[in-house]
Write a protein that binds this DNA or RNA. Structure first.
Lengths: 139, 139
DNA sequence: CTGTATCCTTAGGGATACTG
DNA sequence: CAGTATCCCTAAGGATACAG
């Protein structure tokens, strides 16, 4: 079937309101691939100012992409993790990474990573998602 | 293989500089799914001001995502089309659309479209890409 | 038709000090 | 540690007029 053109409410509009922001993309990347979960961790590299970080975390939480909860062990720490809606963005980000690796010389992604993804994108995304979902429950 | 974490220069950074902008996403959507190719067409709906449109078109061309050339028939018209690098963004956008359709109630995407995509994402993306590449040569 | 050029205004970002 | 509050400032966007 050929993709349809000109359908009403083409969904990129919704996504553009959320993902159409550089810091948001970087944050999601950190959550998805760099195993970052704490406010201070997001500030380590490629970091926005604290107010900006705070704002983006709120937006992502409001959009249902992020879960925010207190660390049960250390009560004054807050733990951020992708919600299932956020985990569902894995295929999108993997496709984006694949694209970047192919077209941007500066980009460095491990060859095995790319090879495994390209061999079976769907299975690879599902495995990544499984790992992230398991992570949700951890402290 | 489990995806690696913390690799150097995680590629989302490159992409965020280009795609981390709402208007850019909307423009690419128009090129990819709405068959728009002329300046005036991009101004029809969900349109930025002309200077913004001009700026984004230039950025996308500079990034090698867009080809710009004079319409051979009507010389004063300019024809925009995705380059092969732009066409390569198909899998990313399809994944994004799939995600939006699943998580945003406002989003309306034809059921057959989604079903066909989900049945075989890779083949579907390739077919879409073929159609867009064919379009490149047309006037 | 395809853009520039200009003006204006505001939202948003960086830095930093400070609070629960 | 996890933010909020403030200040400052610039970059970016909308509107519109106009040029090639």
């Amino acid at each position: 079937m050929r993709p349809k053109k000109n359908w009403k409410g083409c969904p990129v509009r919704y996504a553009s309101g959320i993902l159409g922001d550089p810091w948001t993309l970087v944050l999601l990347r950190d959550l998805m691939f760099k195993d970052k979960h704490y406010f201070r961790e997001f500030l380590l590299e490629e970091a926005p100012a604290t107010n900006i970080l705070s704002d983006r975390l709120k937006s992502l939480e409001a959009a249902g992409i992020l879960c925010r909860r207190r660390d049960p062990v250390r009560g004054n720490q807050v733990y951020y993790a992708l919600s299932s809606k956020g985990v569902d963005l894995c295929p999108t980000f993997l496709a984006l990474i694949d694209w970047s690796a192919r077209h941007d010389a500066e980009t460095e992604a491990p060859a095995e990573f790319l090879a495994a993804y390209r061999a079976n994108p769907v299975a690879f995304a599902e495995e990544l998602a499984r790992g992230l979902s398991a992570n949700q429950g951890a402290d």
